[in-house]
Design a protein around this nucleic acid. Sequence first.
DNA 1: CAAATTATTGACCATTTGGTCAGGATCAGG
DNA 2: CCTGATCCTGACCAAATGGTCAATAATTTG
Lengths: 208, 208
Amino acid sequence: MQEQPRRQSRIQKRNREVILTAALREFSAGGFAGTTIDQIAEAAGLSKPNVLYYFQSKEAIHSALLRGLLDLWLGPLRDLQAEGDPREQILAYARRKLEMSRDYPQESRLFANEVLQGADRLQPILGGELRELVEEKSALIAGWIAEGRIAEVDPHHLLFSIWALTQHYADFEVQVRAVLGPDHDPFAEAQIFLDQLYLRLLTPQPRE
Amino acid sequence: MQEQPRRQSRIQKRNREVILTAALREFSAGGFAGTTIDQIAEAAGLSKPNVLYYFQSKEAIHSALLRGLLDLWLGPLRDLQAEGDPREQILAYARRKLEMSRDYPQESRLFANEVLQGADRLQPILGGELRELVEEKSALIAGWIAEGRIAEVDPHHLLFSIWALTQHYADFEVQVRAVLGPDHDPFAEAQIFLDQLYLRLLTPQPRE
DNA sequence: CAAATTATTGACCATTTGGTCAGGATCAGG
DNA sequence: CCTGATCCTGACCAAATGGTCAATAATTTG
């Protein structure tokens, strides 16, 4: 019954990994349609038929990538917990997401490409797993608001704003860099900016 | 010497327009590589050779689109002026950009696709025209900060945040809708959220 | 070390795609 | 209503691309 572990020979494991790494680079830079199996093969240092020996089709590579990256991508949101200072929790989430944009820009762009073009191969997850996760965390945030521990905001859009503001630095990196010029560190500056922003947004204001 | 106006016959004008409209729909939904001339032709109700009669190549269609849309896209930022209440100016800019995301999502996605994939065909504009415009408006904002009329923030990243937060609702619309479910109006909610956000971010806080 | 399994490849194929072209249809202007 | 210019199309082409396959090389295993 345990087929999975037995099946993965050493060489198989390595090559699958190499292919997925190469495919991530290519897909994230060119989108699904804009990437050829030949490109992936070359980037992986393998022949095209050899790539197709490990994955049935281009689609299969893409699917495997998305599936494998989902957990990495949703991890930070899962870590948003009830314990601790609410503001600090949310700030930490934003910070963590920004780090992900800095350290995994290809992953960010892969998802962005996908969603941007209709997310056909992703929709079930968006409306299912992701939606439930967001619902859960939104309830948590709503609780904090009700307790008066953070200022009043729409929890859903608060989460959207964190996604938008952090992923922007990965997805639109070339634009950000082009506008800022070479003498800036976008991510370092963004960290400060986002801290400021969410602090001001979330700190309850006893306006008399 | 006046070739441009003389050259555009009525039929030419109409068909060029039809093609660009169809191309916008297709490119924004599938990216450059993911769109075929046949698709554009069909969407335009013309034959493929006929499309290529009006535009030299697929590239040419794409370029014409980008060039034609740039002004629309940068218009709101150009309107950011020194006169009036600074906070209101910035809020109005954010609102205007959000309306653009709602009313011109295809245009937003076209640019997003482009930037996301390296912006090869756009880089000169990003580092040139856009950069200068941003520099100018950043200086304006910096002035407001120096006068104490809005709270201290990095002007560049303030602008980035407006782009990110507003375009997110167009570029990631399927995700936003999937997460929110059918009983929400993302744009109406976003408007309220963004107003709140920028009001709190920009209102000077005389913390004693 | 031999058999069996796994890995790899060159050659090949069908389809798609960007683009061309010669000729026919249509239209504007005299 | 004729003529030249503009508009349009079917047929076609070369290149690129996703994918197959038979044959060979490398590796594992008994």
